[in-house]
Write a protein that binds this DNA or RNA. Structure first.
Length: 364
DNA sequence: GACGCGTGGCC
DNA sequence: TGGCCAAGCGT
């Protein structure tokens, strides 16, 4: 026996609701695969309202895949400044260059090739294939898992990789003919607007009447998700090193390593310290000297806390007078003397922008 | 499978 | 106020 539509009371009302309620978002103007791609990367773990201005600027600066492929990496990183998860920008840039060279600037339209691109995983691949190419591929993100875990009362931990596979199977079975992109987006839109994590708006939900989670009063305890480990606290001594003589009016910045946390971003020099040794100027001067920076630690300026997903920095910022920086250090090209105005040429994590602007404010 | 990887908004 | 969360991916 052939099942015509195993989910008639979900798919149809959902699509109808989506048609009437979908938001007017900049990446919904057309289905250019490159535009969809950029939007999906930016939207990873990031809110729509945060992404919109970044997306607008990014598409203005890099309107086509070729434009992005030909841009210097530092410019791409600068366009991502403040958005977080900066490896997304570097991976997107790498992947776009790959598409330009290997596929003649045409974004692949099959799972194998598109998944081989840096930064494109199962979700993003499904999103591009369905939205840009109309292929019946699932695009299962956090929204989709929340919606489906509630509707079908699925109690698997959504933090486990296997759960996503289960959801993808479900979506494949539910996928309506000819409307793959709309269906995937409708699932996410429902999760974003109605089936929200904390206080779902069940009374106006288009599929309320068949939602098992709701019917059994479980909507607030779904989805099941294992708690993340708390960020590890670390103390850092931050050196605001002001130049003398020919570097008068400038301060010293440093480029981070090519891999890892905030890779390739610029920052103020800072060093891990033990809680009980902080504020000892001798230790600070020793740490700076190991980097080839000869400076005196001066007055304490401010403390700043910053929490990453896995780290919590407690930053103690000190004013320093930079007598000189060793030739080896400067020639490494990872250190620069700059003014506040020069910051427009360098990509900084937000935490350092805050610190520098704060210092600049109190100095002027 | 577990961890590393940013940031800001929300209640 | 702080813990939680948001259109995940790489290793």
């Amino acid at each position: 026996m052939i099942e015509m539509d195993p989910h008639p009371d979900f798919t149809a009302p959902l699509l109808e609701w989506y048609d009437a309620n979908k938001r007017d978002l900049p990446w919904r103007k057309n289905t250019d695969p490159y535009r969809i791609w950029v939007s999906e990367i930016m939207l990873q773990q990031t809110r729509v309202d945060t992404v919109i201005p970044y997306y607008e600027r990014f598409m203005e600066k890099f309107p086509t895949l070729d434009a992005l492929a030909e841009a210097p990496e530092d410019e791409v990183l600068k366009s991502w400044e403040g958005l977080g998860y900066y490896s997304r920008a570097r991976h997107l840039h790498m992947a776009v260059k790959e598409v330009k060279e290997r596929y003649g600037s045409r974004v692949p339209d099959n799972r194998e090739e598109i998944m081989s691109l840096k930064g494109v995983g199962p979700y993003t691949a499904g999103a591009i294939l369905s939205i840009a190419y109309g292929k019946p591929e699932p695009a299962v993100d956090g929204n989709v898992m929340r919606v489906l875990s509630r509707f079908y009362l699925i109690t698997e931990d959504i933090a486990k990789p296997g759960t996503r596979l289960l959801m993808e199977k479900l979506v494949r079975k539910m996928m309506p003919e000819g409307r793959a992109g709309d269906f995937n987006q409708a699932l996410m839109e429902l999760g974003a607007l109605i089936c929200t994590p904390k206080s779902p708006h069940c009374l106006i939900c288009p599929v309320m009447s068949n939602c098992r989670g709701r019917l059994e009063g479980m909507e607030l305890s779904l989805p099941v998700k294992k708690k993340a480990k708390p960020p590890r606290p670390v103390q850092r001594l931050v050196a605001f090193v002001e130049g003398e003589d020919e570097h008068e009016g400038k301060f010293l910045i440093r480029r981070r390593p090519d891999e890892g946390l905030l890779a390739k971003m610029w920052e103020l020099p800072h060093y891990e310290i033990q809680p009980d040794t902080m504020a000892t100027s001798q230790l600070g001067e020793q740490l700076l000297k190991e980097d080839g920076i000869y400076a005196n630690i001066g007055e304490w300026i401010l403390n700043e806390e910053h929490t990453f997903s896995h780290l919590h920095w407690e930053m103690h910022v000190y004013r320093c007078r930079g007598r000189m920086v060793s030739e080896r250090t400067l020639s490494s090209d990872r250190y620069r003397w700059i003014t506040v105005d020069d910051m427009q040429d360098y990509a900084f994590p937000n935490v350092f922008i805050r610190i520098i602007q704060n210092i600049h404010h109190r100095d002027t």
